[in-house]
Simulated scan of single mutants.
Amino acid sequence: MSDWRWEYNTDDPAYHTNGLPTGVVAEVERLATELVALGRDAARAGHPTGREGGLRSFDILGGRGVVQFLVVPRHECLYVCNIIWSG
């Protein structure tokens, strides 16, 4: 099991989640939890493919939204940077 953690990249999670349906927030948090289990390998998950690091993204809920995240190995943390929801 990984000692990695995830968090929103602001002190106020509502900045990212305000106005989103609870199911969307739950899906983002579930995905973040699964990604931190990968540890350093999370830096290769999602898009863009073929390279490691930088701002990564995943489609969520059948392509109706996108979550963008940054993996910082020296902090052992995944930061959720943006949630885009088109409903």
Rank of each mutant, 00 (worst) to 15 (best):
W85G: 08
N82C: 06
R44L: 12
T17C: 10
T22W: 13
R56P: 15
S2D: 01
Y79H: 12
V80I: 10
D59A: 15
Y15G: 04
G62P: 04
P21G: 09
R30G: 06
L20K: 07
A42E: 09
G62K: 01
E29G: 11
E7M: 14
E52H: 06
N82P: 00
C81N: 12
D11K: 08
L35D: 08
C81E: 15
H47D: 09
N9I: 03
Y8T: 02
D41F: 01
F69Q: 04
E7G: 14
T33W: 05
Y8H: 02
S57I: 04
G23V: 00
E34Y: 00
P48T: 03
D3Q: 09
F69N: 05
Y15Q: 12
H47E: 13
V67E: 07
Q68A: 15
A37S: 05
E27V: 04
V80K: 02
T17L: 06
M1K: 05
G53D: 09
R44F: 11
N82K: 07
A14I: 00
L55E: 07
P73Q: 06
Y79D: 02
L38C: 00
I84V: 12
T33C: 05
V67H: 04
W4D: 02
L35V: 09
P13G: 00
G87N: 11
P21N: 06
V25G: 02
A37N: 04
N18V: 06
G53C: 05
P48F: 05
T33K: 11
V25R: 05
T17K: 11
G23P: 01
D41I: 00
L31T: 08
R64L: 10
G54P: 03
D41V: 00
G39D: 13
E34P: 00
E34D: 01
L61H: 01
G19S: 13
L20Q: 10
G65Q: 02
H47F: 12
A32L: 11
G65M: 03
V80E: 01
A37E: 06
G39A: 14
A37G: 06
Y79M: 05
R44G: 11
N9D: 11
P13L: 01
A37R: 12
V72I: 15
C77T: 14
L35Q: 08
L70F: 10
E34L: 01
D12R: 12
H16L: 13
A14C: 00
S86F: 08
A26Y: 05
V36Y: 04
G39I: 10
V24N: 10
W6G: 05
V72N: 11
L55D: 05
D3S: 11
E76H: 11
G50S: 03
C77A: 13
W4N: 04
G19E: 14
F69H: 09
L35M: 08
N82T: 04
R44Q: 13
E7D: 15
Y79F: 15
L35E: 06
T17E: 15
